[in-house]
């Protein structure tokens, strides 16, 4: 599904700042991978580079989604191709209604894929049902995108967008941060409901707790712009118990 090979990137404005330094990763359809790693190791940057945010210069390596070169596409083309990023810090957009935004996004993607747009009625029906599952009330749908939402509400709103857009490759950047215990369950259920043999997930997190709900097949440890260790779910437990010190030492040895 997602294949990243030897990816290097630096800041566009400052080529001295190198963030990704030879990152490789392959995620097959149906799999859930987790990435853990110390603050500043480049996890969010990886998600930004994959989704096409300005400001980063890829200097080496490649990233493909189902064989298509992601790095060559505009952000909206990547989205239409099936890539989704649940943001670590969802963006507030005053003046744009949440519902309007969702419908515009859904229909834009459908149009880009040559599918028919959803009618207002159909859309409303689906959105209401999915919002209910995530306990997002009607008022939140009417309000401007993320404006005045609590931290947890913003994260649930990201998952609602994901549920509506039905992407193939979902990247979740610290979706668990800011969530209370109940909200974490809701969000995990939302994610698990989307799990399917032809969809894959990359879950960035600092905590084992989320991985209790969303069971990963593979866990990667990232440090200084590279994957330094890959293993099974037990790797997350090791981090939870011992921190990164041993793993980092082992990698540097």
């Amino acid at each position: 599904m997602l294949k990243i090979e030897n990816l290097h990137c630096e800041l566009e404005d400052d080529s001295e700042v190198k963030i990704l330094k030879g990152l490789s990763l392959t995620i097959n359809p149906g799999e859930v991978h987790a990435i853990m790693g110390p603050n500043g190791s480049g996890k969010s940057t990886l998600s930004y580079v994959l989704s096409g945010r300005d400001g980063y210069e890829v200097t080496e390596g490649s990233a493909t989604l189902e064989g298509e070169d992601l790095l060559d596409m505009e952000p909206e083309e990547r989205a239409a191709a099936g890539l989704f990023l649940a943001f670590q810090y969802p963006v507030e957009i005053p003046g744009v209604g949440n519902m309007t935004f969702l419908r515009t996004a859904v229909n834009a993607q459908r149009k880009a894929r040559g599918e028919e747009e959803l009618s207002a009625g159909e859309f409303l029906k689906v959105v209401r049902a999915k919002a209910k599952e995530l306990q997002i009330d009607a008022d939140m749908l009417k309000r401007p995108v993320n404006v005045g939402f609590s931290g947890g509400e913003k994260k649930r709103n990201e998952i609602l967008q994901m549920a509506m857009l039905e992407p193939k490759m979902c990247i979740l950047d610290e979706t668990d941060s800011g969530l209370d215990v109940d909200a974490m369950k809701l969000v995990s259920e939302g994610v698990n409901a989307l799990r399917s043999p032809d969809r894959a997930f990359l879950v960035i997190t600092h905590y084992q707790r989320l991985l209790d709900h969303i069971k990963p097949d593979v866990v990667h440890i990232m440090s200084e712009g590279r994957i330094i260790k890959t293993g099974g779910p037990e790797l997350a437990l090791e981090v939870e118990n011992n921190g990164y010190a041993d793993l980092l030492a082992e990698a540097n040895a």
């Binding site: 096409g52 945010r53 507030e92 935004f101 515009t104 834009a108 967008q161």
Partner: peptide
């Protein structure tokens, strides 16, 4: 904001118009 909207699949021109 523009990047966020585009990352959801809204084409640049349309995202700008909404903004």
């Amino acid at each position: 904001q523009l990047y966020y909207m585009r990352a959801r699949g809204v084409p640049e021109a349309e995202a700008k118009m909404l903004l």
